[in-house]
Design a protein around this nucleic acid. Structure first.
Length: 599
RNA sequence: GCGCCCGUAGCUCAGUAGGAUAGAGCAUCGGUUUCCUAAACCGGAGGUCGCAGGUUCGAGUCCUGCCGGGCGUACCA
């Protein structure tokens, strides 16, 4: 079902085009009304049109309004202010939409994409020389939510976990492991049959590997001999298989998988296409760019100098694709991956969910891909960037020791804190239920807090805030859902059969302002999803869900459901049911946040 | 130096191709529970949208210049 706003937009744009008789678009720019007293929607585009045709905006608006027939949707479409048209929806139309949503159990009457696209989403992408930490949170969950939203709209989504398993950090690690061979060699041999998907414990804990990596990193800074060797090993790794490397990789991937499962992020081993996957394509990337005259040698490195990028001295800035020692870099693997995604995966769009600091890298990468003709202009290349997670002081979130906070520890603490709240608010529940609630609330709180911020800005991480029951938080949303479920449970004990009251339902009685307000908002779910998808911004979805929950609360306070008379009760039951379905769908299907029947 | 992101209420944040009187939550002040979960709801107070210009019928949003913060800027990712 097409969002109302699109429907109105099309009709009014058409009326404007006919009235103005000019070539080109006449966008009506229909938006939700900025104030309820202006109705439900407002037309903003007439004043722009009036300017274009040098006419009086109010007269133009009046003429357009006179030519409109919106009887199907609206009770009124009146000119107001300097040239707006205010639209008010008909209760019958709203009711019809509600019933359509009710019919569509899985799709909630949300319009699917007319032309489904193949969208490759590159997200999470941890460097596997260390455990996942808070720095991987945003890419992982924003990427996952993006995939879920696009899938729901009918697009073909290909998830790609571009793990860092092939660069200098790995080279460093290999040197260290080699030096410590005596200690690790037996363990490594035991690893021969290690399978990241199996529940076998990793014979070398990732924590130990990570400690090795940290040591290596420090030595890399101060010990030039060590650094040279690490670079040599990176080179070797990239030219052949190294046994140790494979084992380390498996251990790390199995650790990542646990995090993905905890976060309810749909990623598994099949989505892993790390840097190493492209190892056989890297030489061609460089050769082809050289042959095309796009890449040239500069200071011993092979570089591409796309137009419009300058370094600090005002000279052209290179995208280096092969170092002077012959090793490849992330630009090389990214280019190989991009080419693979277009040629082999058939991508119409490639979406990179990485932090804002990599903006320049992706701008250059995209420029080079276009220069080389590897991505034509009709392949969308998007860098979906995001800000940092900050601690209370406004500095990047770190432990007291100044280290990155491990994702596992962060999530464990969230569940623990949620558990304490459940224990306080609802101690009588069975232990199993309490644990389930704590998990949904704790993990949900972390994810929801992230989604509800505009992704481009940094945000301050606060357990207290994200676990609060007031405001735009996961627990608030989950509570609204649980309250509705409670009504449904109570219905049974009062011999109200929701099934029968709702199945035969043909007409609604939306008379109370709170009912109508909630209903009008319910039919806008599709609008919110489209907006979130268009800009890859989950916060449009959380804003919608929050406002929906607030409107539900107003309805809940003003309109008794189970005690309502037979003329009102079916409508109210439907309002409850659809609200729960929309919240449940938004949270669990699109954002991967659990809902609970009781809390 | 140059480039990018940002600066909105005491605090944390929204603000969807420029639209009507800039919105939430916390904190603060006041009210609501014989009634479907008060983990809730309702109301008050709180703003020169960093500063100064400009474009426009109209600017938090676009342009220019400053101020303040963050990030990036040739062989890390």
């Amino acid at each position: 079902m097409k969002p109302v706003i699109w429907e109105l937009e099309e009709r009014i744009s058409e009326a404007m085009r006919e009235y103005a008789q000019i070539p080109g678009a006449c966008p009506a720019i229909v938006r939700p009304a900025t104030d309820p007293k202006f109705g439900d929607y407002q037309v903003n585009g007439i004043m722009g049109l009036a300017k274009k045709i040098k006419a009086d905006p109010v007269a133009t608006a009046q003429a357009v309004a006179n030519s409109l027939d919106l009887n199907e949707f609206c009770t009124s479409w009146n000119v107001a202010g300097p040239g707006f048209i205010n639209l008010e929806l008909k209760a019958e139309f709203v009711a019809r939409r509600m019933l359509e949503i009710n019919e569509d159990v899985s799709g909630l009457a949300v319009e699917k994409a007319k032309i489904p696209r193949t969208v490759v989403v590159d997200f999470s992408s941890p460097n596997i020389a260390k455990q996942m930490h808070v720095g991987h949170l945003r890419s992982t969950i924003i990427g996952d939510a993006t995939c879920r939203i696009l899938e729901f709209l009918g697009h073909k989504v290909i998830r790609q976990n571009h793990i860092g398993d092939w660069g200098t950090p790995m080279g460093m690690l290999l040197v260290i492991v080699e030096e410590l061979q005596s200690k690790f060699i037996q363990n490594i041999e035991n690893l021969e049959k290690f399978n990241p998907e199996s529940p076998l414990p990793a014979p070398i804990p990732l924590e130990e590997i990570e400690q090795l990596y940290k040591d290596a990193n420090k030595r890399f800074e101060v010990d030039s001999q060590f650094a040279a060797k690490a670079k040599k090993y990176t080179y070797n790794l990239q030219r052949g298989i190294v046994n140790t490397w494979w084992h380390i990789r498996n251990i790390s991937l199995s650790s990542c998988q646990k995090i993905y499962d905890t976060l309810d992020v749909k990623l598994n081993i099949e989505h892993v296409r790390g840097e190493s996957f492209y190892k056989n394509l890297l030489v061609d990337v460089v050769d082809d760019l050289k042959k095309a005259g796009i890449a040239i040698e500069s200071d011993g490195a092979i570089c591409v100098f796309p137009d419009g990028f300058k370094n600090k001295d005002g000279q052209s800035l290179p995208l280096i694709i092969e170092k002077s020692d012959g090793a490849f870099l992330y630009a090389t693997t990214d280019l190989a991956a991009l080419r693979y995604r277009v040629d082999e995966l058939g991508a119409d769009a490639i979406v990179y969910v990485t932090d804002a600091r990599q903006k320049l890298h992706f701008e250059m990468l995209f420029a080079v891909a276009r220069m080389a003709g590897w991505a034509s202009e009709d392949v969308e290349l998007s860098h979906v960037m995001f800000g940092s997670v900050l601690g209370a002081g406004g500095a990047p979130l770190k432990t007291r020791e100044g280290e990155n906070v491990k994702l596992k520890e962060l999530l464990d603490e969230a569940v623990e804190r949620a558990n304490a709240v459940v224990e306080e608010k609802n101690p009588g529940l069975p232990a199993e239920k309490k644990a389930e609630i704590a998990k949904a609330v704790g993990i949900g709180a972390v994810k929801y807090a992230d989604f509800s911020n505009n992704r481009t800005s940094d945000y301050i991480f606060s357990f207290d805030k994200m676990l609060a029951m007031e405001g735009n938080t996961a627990p608030y949303m989950q509570y609204a859902y649980a309250r509705i479920k409670s009504i449904e449970r109570k219905a049974q004990s009062r011999d109200v059969d929701i099934e029968t009251e709702l199945t035969g339902l043909k007409a609604l009685s939306l008379s109370d302002p709170a009912e109508l307000d909630l209903a009008k908002y319910l039919i806008r779910y599709g609008e919110a999803i489209q907006a979130a998808a268009a800009d890859y911004r989950p916060n449009y979805l959380t804003s919608y869900l929050y406002e929906l929950a607030q409107k539900f609360s107003a309805f809940y306070t003003n309109c008794p459901v189970l005690d309502a008379g037979p003329d009102k009760r079916p409508t109210r039951l439907l309002l409850c049911d659809l609200t729960a379905r929309v919240i449940g769908h938004g949270l669990s299907e699109l954002l991967g946040i659990g809902v609970v029947e009781q809390m």
